[in-house]
């Protein structure tokens, strides 16, 4: 007979593991979501609260009445629609320009085996790291010399440029994944390089163009320092600058409600973009940062 070993019922590891992991995961996912959404939701809530509720202490989390007065005020007292249109115009035009200039460059760097290609790529990569504060002084001079102050070009040109490096890196990585045969077939068919780019290569990389375009649009919509410096006339301002200046306009009472409303309106287009294009944004960001 073997010495009798006391039968101890150990808590089996699987019993606990199976129960706890999904619960923990659920809690963390919930926390991540709260963390990411709370500030925006709070701003949204503020924007539809009455002034009385906004300044009530302790804070009101579930207001009884809602109001659109802050939004109405934005459009009544300021050219807010104009800000939106300015932002949209500058962002869209610079995005299109950026794709138009960046894709051919990316193609040349992906396929045409130029001498000094590595050097150019290295420089393009480094340039993405430049904070805009290093550029605004020199650009201010150019804007003054060319008389571009309060002109859309003063934003369109720099926005196109600041998005070029990302466009070049992302599009290049997409071009490199294209099957080579397609371009060879086009050459044999008689397309020259430019025709091939426009009629064969770009139509087959539309998803990549969309990805890059979304990123460029986001950056252009969000830009602050150039817009702050080069656009001083009220009718030329973009949303981020205009919203940031709402508070500074009055000395007496800070208009929290309209600020919140402006924030909501200014972020709304981007929230929608992210909702619809989350995958593309992630794909583009990682292609631009990692593959280069």
């Amino acid at each position: 007979m073997a010495p009798s070993t006391p039968v101890v019922t150990k808590p089996s590891p699987t019993q606990e593991g199976v129960n706890w992991k999904p619960v923990l995961l659920g809690i963390t996912v919930f926390l991540v979501a709260i963390f990411s959404l709370a500030p925006i939701l709070w701003q949204l809530l503020t924007s539809i609260k009455t002034n009385a509720d906004i300044s009530r202490i302790p804070n009101v989390y579930f207001p009884r009445e809602f109001t659109l007065e802050h939004y109405i005020q934005l459009f009544d007292r300021r050219p807010f629609l104009r800000y939106v249109l300015n932002s949209a115009f500058v962002a869209i035009v610079s995005t299109l320009l950026c794709l138009g200039l960046g894709s051919p460059a990316a193609y040349a760097l992906a396929r045409l085996r130029l001498k000094g290609e590595q050097l150019i790529l290295g420089l393009v990569l480094i340039v993405t790291l430049f904070p805009y504060i290093l550029l605004f002084l020199g650009l201010l001079e150019i804007v003054q010399i060319l008389g571009l102050g309060n002109n859309y070009l003063a934003l369109i040109i720099p926005y196109t440029a600041i998005n070029l490096p990302l466009t070049i890196l992302v599009m290049r990585s997409f071009f490199q994944q294209l099957p080579r045969d397609l371009e060879d077939a086009a050459k044999v068919d008689g397309y020259n390089t430019v025709q091939m780019l426009w009629q064969i290569v770009l139509p087959t990389t539309i998803p990549a163009l969309v990805t890059t375009g979304i990123l460029a649009f986001i950056f252009a919509w969000n830009e602050f320092i150039f817009a702050l410096t080069f656009m001083t006339r009220e009718t030329m301002k973009t949303i981020p600058v205009a919203a940031a200046q709402i508070g500074g306009a009055t000395l007496f009472e800070i208009p929290y409600g309209p600020i919140a409303a402006a924030t909501v309106l200014g972020t709304l287009p981007l929230v929608l973009l992210v909702l619809f294009f989350q995958r593309k944004i992630v794909q583009g960001l990682t292609a631009g940062a990692v593959k280069g």
């Binding site: 701003q43 600020i259 989350q278």
Partner: peptide, 19 residues
Amino acid sequence: ARTIAILPWALPTALIALS
């Protein structure tokens, strides 16, 4: 969840600063 998580990155810094 991923969509929500990348939202902060995509929003204008100036407006986030106001928030």
